[in-house]
């Protein structure tokens, strides 16, 4: 068995916020009809969450289900549990039109933690990050400088960013630059 590693193992940066590559994260891309009873109950059984509404992310312990598009969900779970979850999904959804793929190794996940996490994102993405417009419980897919990315806020001081693994170094460099201690603008202070 080969030794699986994440895109930038152990990469961290202490600036205005702490930027940290989160290591191996389990992720399943699940496509299907969000209104389908079988899909809703499979999410409930396997993830322990309700079906997320439009642009929502629902957390349950170490797992979460996120709304990616009208026919796509992103399931977040511990890396070691992906294979089992996929098997259970395939059993539960047999006979319905769906697609479930393990994308854990195709992605990189970063965690920003600190009071100015909103500002670090706001400098890179064309998204209104003010507390009234975006907050915990929501997920936003957007453009981060030149790459596609998605992010959500597990709590008021943290942002998790997911991007393609092939651009992990670029994303980390961007986040470092945006989180530079001298680069604060105090937008949401």
């Amino acid at each position: 068995m080969s030794n699986t590693i994440s895109a930038l193992p152990g990469a961290t940066y202490e600036g205005a916020v702490r930027v940290q590559e989160m290591g191996l994260c389990g992720m399943i891309s699940l496509r299907g009809d969000h209104g389908d009873e079988k899909l809703i109950s499979a999410i409930k059984d396997i993830m322990g969450t309700v079906m997320p509404g439009q642009r929502e992310i629902v957390h349950q312990d170490e797992r979460a289900a996120a709304w990616m598009s009208p026919d796509e969900l992103l399931l977040l779970l511990p890396y070691a549990d992906v294979r089992d979850a996929l098997t259970r999904l395939e059993t539960a959804l047999a006979g319905t039109h769906f697609l479930a793929v393990n994308v854990s190794d195709a992605r990189a996940v970063f965690r920003l933690h600190g009071g100015s996490a909103r500002e670090v994102i706001a400098k890179l993405c064309p998204v209104d990050m003010s507390p009234g417009a975006f907050g915990p419980g929501q997920i936003r897919r957007t453009r981060m400088a030149q790459i596609p990315a998605a992010f959500w806020m597990p709590d008021e001081d943290s942002v998790h960013v997911v991007c393609f693994r092939s651009v992990a170094q670029y994303a980390f460099d961007l986040l470092k630059q945006s989180a530079h201690p001298q680069a604060g603008v105090g937008l949401y202070a």
Partner: peptide, 11 residues
């Protein structure tokens, strides 16, 4: 109209 996001052109 599919995801309800109001975004600027480059997205």
């Amino acid at each position: 109209p599919c995801c309800g996001v109001t975004g600027e052109e480059t997205e």
